[in-house]
Computed example of a mutant assay.
Amino acid sequence: MGQRGKMRILIVLEPSGGGSGRNALDLVAATLDRGHDTHLVYSATRMDPLFARRLSAICPSRRHRVDMDRAPGPRDLFALRGLRQLLRRLGPFDVIHAHSSKAGALTRLLPRRYGARIYTPHAFRTMDPACRGIARAVFGGVEGALARWATDALICVSPDERAEAQRLRAPLDRTHLVPNGVPRATPSVPLTRADLNLSPTDIVFGFVGRLSAQKDPLAFVEAIARIRDLTHVRVIIVGVGELEAQLQQQIDAKGLGEVIRCVGQDDAARYYPLFDIFVLTSRYESMPYVLIEAAEAGLPMIATDVSTADSIILDGQNGLVVPRADLATALPEAMEALIQPDQRSAMTAQAARLRGRYSLDRMVDQTLAVYQAALDGQGGSAGAGR
């Protein structure tokens, strides 16, 4: 360890984007600001434009490209060799913090002499309802074995993720709960309703996220189509992904082109001030940044009953939690309830009072405490939740 408690930290990431990418970049920036010697290993295989923009702000000598594939395969051997060569050149580090399952598996196959091994899954693969049978057994077996034998600290970002870690038999004394945190939103270029031809009387539902099967934007559009009166309803969808073309086809087929606007990849902070209600339709999640951002923006929310929704949303106070199993009925009913002025006004006021629970400084403090506990060999008494 460096002078006066400063650490050498290596953060390793496979999906260069989404919530895990944001978490990793936030940690890099915050730990550098606090004087730690932090480096980032990233993969360009899955990199979104927002990640690339933030990556360019990191000193070139502190960012290192090692391409990794999401799915297991023979190319993993090349990624492992690349990591080993980089560590021989730059290491050792005090801690190596891997984000997501692929980076977590590869870094924990390396000897501990390169640094204490910290792992954040950002939703175990076994939390995906589509992961069943042999695949679930294999992924679960690998995660459990690595947690027991090759992990100095496991950081879970949600209570559900921690519960899944326990089901996979991860050691309790090395499992920590550190929820994601966000800075106060500062949109790069603020938008007004006039910019998007929205009237002051429009009720705007917002969706932010990857257009993927996990986030299920198709269910969101289906729910919009079931709302009985769309006269003053407008919808903004922020994001890109593999379902983009199918989503637009669905919007056109439902005759919702005047109601729904897809704006593509953009700075979501520009759009939160335009939303009246935020909607999350995910099939599974760990600790979704978009829900935290909506909460910190003081928005009433509607979300499926996955992962941390019921810890961010106090059902009936600052939003509504709807059952994923009955989404086709429950989601349009919840949306119609919040279209009503009295209920929307009451939830908006309560949402404003509940802001400030998920700060970035708190997340960084707890993460550094986990690092220190791993170095000290003190198990879970690091100040982060367990």
Rank of each mutant, 00 (worst) to 15 (best):
D216I: 06
L338K: 13
H99P: 01
G206Y: 05
V290C: 10
D48F: 04
G356H: 09
E242N: 08
S282D: 02
D305P: 10
Q214E: 13
P183L: 05
D160M: 09
T192P: 07
Y284E: 00
L40F: 06
I339K: 15
R65H: 10
R234Y: 01
V95I: 11
S100G: 06
L109V: 07
R167T: 13
A351K: 15
R53M: 11
G35T: 03
L177F: 09
S345F: 14
N197V: 12
K254P: 00
V221E: 04
L86Y: 05
L247T: 01
Y289P: 07
Y271Q: 03
A330L: 08
A334R: 08
V240N: 10
L10P: 02
Q372I: 02
L90R: 12
D376H: 07
F78V: 12
A351Y: 10
R108I: 08
T107C: 15
P74N: 08
R112D: 06
A103F: 03
D267C: 02
I302V: 14
A349Y: 10
V189P: 08
P15T: 14
G241P: 00
K6Q: 13
A29C: 09
L90Y: 07
R193M: 04
R174M: 05
R210L: 08
Q249L: 10
L146F: 03
F78E: 14
V322P: 09
R386P: 03
I134T: 12
R362M: 11
A325D: 15
P49D: 13
M335K: 08
T192N: 08
T201V: 14
V28A: 01
R270T: 01
A79F: 03
S43N: 04
I312M: 07
R8H: 09
L77W: 13
D67H: 07
F93M: 08
Q214T: 08
Y284Q: 00
T186E: 14
M287H: 12
V290P: 00
R210G: 11
G5Y: 05
R4S: 13
P183E: 10
G241Q: 01
I277G: 08
Q265I: 10
P300S: 14
F124W: 11
I134V: 14
T308V: 15
A105Q: 13
A384Y: 00
D229T: 15
L256N: 00
A328E: 14
V279C: 09
L247A: 01
D266N: 12
G385A: 05
G383K: 05
R193E: 02
S282Y: 04
Q366E: 11
L77V: 14
P171T: 05
D267N: 05
K254R: 15
G19C: 06
I302T: 07
E296L: 07
A170H: 07
L55Y: 05
D365F: 00
L80V: 06
C156L: 00
G104E: 01
E333Q: 15
A245V: 13
D195R: 06
V364A: 01
D315K: 10
C131G: 05
A325I: 12
V240P: 00
